[in-house]
Write a protein that binds this DNA or RNA. Structure first.
Length: 769
DNA sequence: GATCCTTGTCATCGT
DNA sequence: CCACGATGACAAGGA
């Protein structure tokens, strides 16, 4: 992480230098540009926040990362960037160029930033030392940044474990870390000799930090509902507005820089800033890290609205004529959050003028005149989504749902949830089913937004899989089951009990028939209501039941529903080639017959359940614990057929999962055995090599022994002093270690044989000995 | 059409 | 005895 940070900062430096040289620095982070977020009103964020809070009630384990909190973090990086730019004040900077780059940079940084920004203590020395060496350090980090946040998300949980909508905000911890580090880190900066920092600055700012921290903590407790706590917000506004403005004062490069003359003519703000600077002599204009810290704190303060914050500024700012001229999202945030106070403040002129500098940097197309001075923008739907969609597509690849997509998804999920509640309360209605299907198809089309994926598609997600499955099954049950029931079940219930084949055939015929007719029946709802005396409380149990604990497990029963767009997600598609094959091999149009073609693909049990009007989804039937299942059966008056079918469904479903697990296990065991086999083969080869080497060494030893024997024999003499013939004598080794030379008993009679032949024979004899 | 693969289902056994 | 999981065997469907 530190390396990455260092490299990123070094890259920032490099980019700044290039910009100073007049080169356009484009790090290719445009896909992450959150400009569309600036176009959305705060209501989007509000909705999102509300939704996520609501969602957190359902499941806290999801949406560990949301792009919006990253956007907020991007502000901090932009602040750091600005600080660094100001640290280059000695240089003659073509300001417009630099500002343009800043826009790119700060937008591009957003995806890669994390909550746990390096503490100033860590960062400050780096900024001093690693300015030059930084860019060459970790080229992979920038790639990671460009590849999107998902990687980062996966890499460091610590960084991304703080979704802005989660109740638990790690920024608190971050701030707690920041505070003690502060004193130490700011010292070297002061020593660096920007020289304008007063001694009392740290203390003052530290106090501010503390105040901000307490405020932010307090505000964070309020979590997303800042609409409800408008009074608190006003208090915080009054408290933090000065901080914001002071930080802004630091932010603008032309404020304290000696290179004011190079600024555009509207640098008249300089006077304001000078005045403000004189009014606050303690503020150091050139402490990037301090500023960054301040901005981080400020962001931390605003984090509870984090999701909201990213969206509101456009509507507030752009209306005023300088739309889109937001120098950075934070400025806009400030403006949006404290619009009234800002207008009354002295320094707002400065802000506006500085904002004008950016008009050239941002394309006018992205400027949407929607100003709501009230601060709360309820006019979210009025936001023109034209360019947002483009961003949406761009972001989609990186799992960064666009605000529009978020909105759609939020609305979708909210609607779905409300519909579910409604369904649970009032039974299943075909309208709900149709709506759900439409929304789900929208989600599918919208696809890549992580929200929908996480919450409704991932089979591994506890909440997502089950709730979605439940909803999907409800949907399917209501939609198709209704039609089936309308045409069939009334007359076929008796026959169905007899044999499933008959039923299946009839059901399929029915489905085909309905597919031709394109009819959507509506019987199921009423029947369900009849069958199930749905007390809402009782049904509501199913949403928050303990059986949901079992849902996140790695059962792949969902795979049995390849055609239902609700229950099948990308993950399940990846898991099941079969499913994909089925999907691909049976292409159906997206028109109305689609759901009937899908119904044709539904499982037999599902169809049976629908035909018998069983008011529960198969997932529910299968995954409920025994107690809950029995309770379910006891609470609902079901006839024999339904009970039998439910029992069969449960048995088959469980057995299906068991079979899948078994096969998975078997496959794993097979793989393990294969590994064992390969290991054993390696071991055998090694042993063979060892054996060969042993044989080789043995032969060498034999050869040496033979040569030694010959040498000894040649050195021996008989009584006459003649050398012994090795063919006639042999060396005997006694048990007690004695060595004796004895004449060979079995002499080969034909001495005419060649010596070689004799030697061979002798050798054999010797060897045999 | 034969073959292989995947998946669902049933029967059976053990816990 | 029942619920449940594991597993072999078989069938169906698709490639």
């Amino acid at each position: 992480m530190y390396l990455k940070k260092y490299f990123t900062e070094g890259l920032v430096q490099l980019a700044i230098l290039l910009s100073l040289c007049g080169l356009r620095v484009d790090v290719g982070l445009e896909p992450y540009l959150p400009s569309h977020e600036m176009m959305l009103g705060p209501s989007a964020g509000i909705t999102q926040t509300q939704f996520h809070n609501l969602w957190n009630h359902l499941d806290n384990s999801h949406h560990r990362s949301h792009p919006k909190n990253i956007d907020l973090d991007g502000f901090a990086s932009s602040r750091r960037l600005l600080g660094w730019v100001r640290s280059l004040d000695r240089l003659q900077v073509p300001n417009a160029e630099l500002e343009t780059w800043l826009v790119h940079r700060e937008q591009g940084t957003l995806p890669g930033e994390h909550h746990s920004q390096p503490t100033p203590l860590e960062r400050a020395p780096v900024s001093l030392e690693g300015d030059r060496a930084g860019p060459a350090l970790q080229p992979g980090d920038i790639l990671r940044n460009q590849e999107g946040e998902e990687q980062d998300e996966a890499d460091d949980d610590v960084n991304m474990e703080s979704p802005a909508w989660s109740d638990r905000s790690p920024r608190e911890e971050t701030q707690r870390q920041v505070l003690p580090n502060r004193q130490t880190y700011s010292d070297p900066l002061n020593e660096e000799g920007e020289g304008e920092t007063g001694d009392g600055l740290e203390e003052e700012e530290e106090e501010e930090e503390l105040a901000r921290t307490s405020r932010s903590t307090r505000e964070r407790k309020d979590s997303a509902g800042y609409r409800e706590s408008a009074q608190n917000d006003e208090d915080q506004m009054s408290l933090s507005l000065q901080e914001c403005l002071r930080l802004l004062e630091h932010t603008f490069p032309f404020t304290h820089q000696p290179s004011e003359e190079i600024l555009p003519p509207n640098g008249g703000a300089v006077d304001h800033e000078r005045l403000s600077a004189e009014r606050r002599p303690l503020l150091s204009p050139l402490i990037p890290s301090d500023l960054e810290l301040q901005w981080q704190d400020l962001l931390a303060i605003m984090e509870p609205q984090g999701l909201d914050v990213s969206t509101p500024f456009p509507s507030n700012l752009e209306t005023d004529g300088f739309s889109g001229a937001i120098q950075n999202p934070l400025d806009a945030t400030i403006l949006s959050i404290y619009p009234s106070s800002l207008n009354s403040h002295n320094d707002n002129q400065m802000i506006y003028q500085d904002v004008h500098l950016m008009e050239a940097a941002l394309p006018p197309a992205s400027l949407t005149p929607q100003f709501e001075p009230s601060g709360t923008n309820p006019n979210l739907p009025m936001i023109p989504p034209s360019h947002l969609l483009v961003d949406d597509e761009e972001d989609g690849d990186y799992g960064l749902p666009s605000p529009l997509g978020d909105l759609l998804e939020d609305a979708t999920i909210l609607d779905e949830m409300s519909l579910l509640d409604l369904a649970l309360e009032e039974g299943f209605s075909p309208e709900m089913a149709a709506r759900l299907e439409e929304e789900e198809s929208e989600e599918k089309a919208d696809s890549d937004s992580g929200l929908s994926l996480d919450c409704s598609f991932s089979p591994a997600s506890p909440c997502g899989s089950e709730s979605s499955c439940y909803s999907s099954s409800s949907t399917s049950s209501s939609s198709s089951g209704s039609s089936t029931g309308s045409l069939y079940s009334e007359g076929n219930e008796q026959k169905d009990e007899e044999g499933g084949i008959n039923l299946d055939m009839e059901l399929e015929m029915t489905i085909k028939q309905e597919e031709e007719e394109g009819a959507v029946g509506g019987y199921y709802t009423s029947d369900v209501n009849k069958i199930v005396p749905t007390s809402y409380q009782e049904e509501k149990l199913f949403n928050g039941l303990p059986w949901q604990e079992h849902i996140g497990h790695d059962h792949t029963y969902n795979q049995a529903w390849p055609s239902t767009p609700t229950a099948t997600g990308k993950a399940s598609m990846k898991q099941s080639k079969y499913s994909s094959r089925q999907r691909t091999t049976k292409p159906y149009t997206r028109s109305s017959p689609k759901r009937f073609a899908e119904a044709e693909l539904w499982s037999r049990d599902d169809r049976r359940a629908r035909s018998l009007k069983i008011p529960f989804s198969n997932e529910l039937i299968i995954n409920l614990p025994v107690d809950d299942y029995n309770e379910l059966l006891a609470n609902h008056r079901l006839n024999e057929q339904q009970l039998n079918l439910m029992r069969d469904i449960r048995r088959r479903g469980k057995n299906k999962m068991a079979a899948q697990n078994c096969r998975r296990r078997k496959l794993g065991a097979l793989l393990g055995l294969e590994e064992d086999v390969s290991g054993l083969r390696r071991q055998r080869a090694w042993l063979r090599r060892e054996k060969q080497e042993a044989l080789k060494s043995l032969q060498e030893m034999e050869q040496r022994l033979e040569s030694l024997y010959q040498e000894v024999m040649f050195s021996l003499r008989d009584e006459d002093g003649r050398p012994l013939d090795a063919t006639d004598y042999a060396i005997q080794f006694g048990d007690n270690g004695s060595v004796t030379v004895t004449p060979r008993r079995h002499r080969t009679l034909p001495r005419a044989d060649s010596k070689a032949g004799k030697k061979h024979k002798d050798k054999k004899c010797d060897e045999s000995k």
